[in-house]
Design a protein around this nucleic acid. Structure first.
Length: 465
RNA sequence: GGCGACGUACCCAAGCGGCUAAGGGAGCGGUCUGCAAAACCGUUAUGCACCGGUUCAAAUCCGGUCGUCGCCUCCA
């Protein structure tokens, strides 16, 4: 069975066919590290993680590159204001980004290239564009891309650039260029840049934003690779410009499949700094929201749909995870020897799960397959005790599914001495049939987010997510 | 002005011309339990923003209206 993706380039769903058998080369646009990334940013990274993990689930080897943009106008300005180097300025944000990815259970990419460490690659690419007459130098020493030389410009964004309205932002651009739509490849040094510059064959200056992705993607993945992703706001101008730069320089097709993730909304508006409706991952974790619940919230809505972020969704996700983990836990321990009788149920689950994700990562149907599976197993075991091989088969399937979702792994739960004492005291009261005291302690523990469950095998306890 | 996405139950959400409109959360009734919790069983849309049209058949296709959100050189 083949995977199908909605390709922004063709505006339709296409069967995925990697250039090289069994290997997927993908470039996922990373963060600009001038601040902490917010949960809206992380939606895209979690989507890319789902994409990556599902391709691996299908048996493909992944080579993923995620750039870290550690030089741009805002970074230079902020670093100069603080009187520190851009490296010192971005370091804590680079670190925080990696920590956040780990918190969200994102599988690491093979490469996280820094823009500042690839300036020579960018300069080489710009030189090629200058040689081919696609780029031009202005009096101040900056280099621009001549959009008029690239007839396909606008194909990805489906924009007719010559009829574009002059946006506010264009007027703000202080650099001189021949046409409004031309964009900067190299920005000549200006006094306000301070110490931030590179002495190169192009002169003293620094690279434009778009060129880093062209240079670094082609360096690690080759001139023509499989998948390129980002948020929908990257479609134009960023990805459009990447295509223009790369294809004009190599004469080859740049990327086969462009996948774009929709926005996360907060109060029905795009979550963004300028609107001031930002939520940071670390703040959510501090507030007690479980990372897996945050991951599921970001993961649980199809990537091409806008996702309205609410605390209700986080709580709902927490409940779902609790339910799934309880189910998994119920499969631990000894089971009687016997035949495999759940084969039909597991087989159906695998089919439904893969059919769903093959269809442009239809996560809703994939999760529905998992819930239906859990329901069917629970229903089955009510009258047919599971055998050891049944339990093994179910566990194996859950692990396989979780290699994609990554929400089931239970971190070792730690309880304080005080909490343990309360649990013991409650068990003692219960043994003594002192129900009033047992209930009081159970309520006390619940207020501490510890849930007690009395089962025929004894009392279990866990933290509420 | 140009381009695009979306509107399905109390909430989230699947659906891609044809079975009783998936699944989850929440609520309600029941089984189990010292009582709970979990689990299980049952239940909650004669209707898919609205108005027309095509068709034997429309949530699904076409046209229009309304509403929400986004992109148009910082943006995941």
């Amino acid at each position: 069975m083949s995977i199908n993706f909605y390709n922004t380039l063709s505006r339709r769903q296409e069967e995925f066919q990697p250039l090289e058998e069994g290997v997927v080369k993908m470039y996922t646009c990373g963060p600009t590290v001038y601040n902490f990334a917010h949960v809206g940013n992380y939606r895209a990274f979690v989507f890319e993680d789902l994409l990556r993990r599902y391709l691996e689930f299908k048996g493909l080897r992944i080579i993923q590159v995620m750039n870290i943009t550690d030089v741009d106008d805002k970074i230079i300005k902020a670093a100069n204001q603080k009187g520190i180097s851009i490296d010192e300025f971005t370091e804590p944000y680079r670190q925080a980004f990696m920590e956040d990815l780990a918190t969200l259970g994102v599988e690491p990419a093979e490469y996280y290239p820094l823009a500042t460490e690839h300036v020579s690659d960018m300069v080489a690419l710009i030189e090629t564009l200058l040689e081919k007459g696609i780029a031009y130098k202005t009096e101040d020493g900056s280099v621009y891309y001549k959009v008029a030389k690239f007839p396909r410009y606008g194909q990805l964004a489906n924009l007719n650039v010559t009829e574009m309205r002059r946006g506010k932002r264009v007027a703000d651009d202080s650099y001189e260029k021949e046409e409004v739509r031309d964009f900067a490849l190299w920005k000549a040094w200006k006094p306000e840049d301070g110490d931030v510059f590179w002495e190169t064959a192009l002169g003293k200056g620094r690279p434009g934003w778009h060129i880093e992705c062209s240079a670094m993607s082609m360096k690690y993945l080759g001139q023509h690779f499989d998948i390129h992703t980002g948020g929908v706001d990257n479609i134009f101008p960023h990805h459009e410009n990447e295509i223009a730069q790369s294809e004009a320089s190599t004469g080859e097709k740049f990327v086969n499949y462009w996948l774009h993730c929709e926005f996360l909304l907060m109060n029905d508006e795009k979550m963004s700094k300028s609107l001031g409706n930002i939520v940071y991952l670390r703040d959510l974790v501090k507030k007690g929201y479980h990372p897996a619940a945050i991951r599921l919230t970001l993961l649980g809505t199809h990537y091409r749909l806008k996702l309205n972020f609410t605390f209700e969704k986080l709580e709902e996700s927490g409940k779902i995870i609790t339910r799934l983990r309880d189910f998994k836990k119920s499969l631990e321990g000894e089971f009687p020897v016997g035949d495999l009788r759940v084969a039909e149920i597991t087989r159906k689950c695998v089919t439904d799960f893969t059919t769903a994700l093959d269809d442009d990562l239809n996560i809703s149907n994939a999760l529905a397959a998992l819930f239906t599976f859990m329901h069917e197993i629970n229903s089955f075991r009510l009258t047919n005790p599971l055998s050891q091989v049944d339990a093994q088969a179910i566990n194996a399937l859950l692990d396989r599914i979780d290699s994609v979702l990554n929400i089931l792994k239970e971190p070792a739960e730690e309880f304080s001495i005080e909490e343990r004492q309360l649990i013991d005291a409650r068990n003692k009261a219960r043994q003594e049939r002192n129900w009033a005291e047992a209930d009081r302690l159970r309520k006390l523990l619940l207020d501490k987010n510890i849930v007690l469950e009395d089962t025929p095998k004894g009392t279990t306890w866990k933290r509420k997510l």
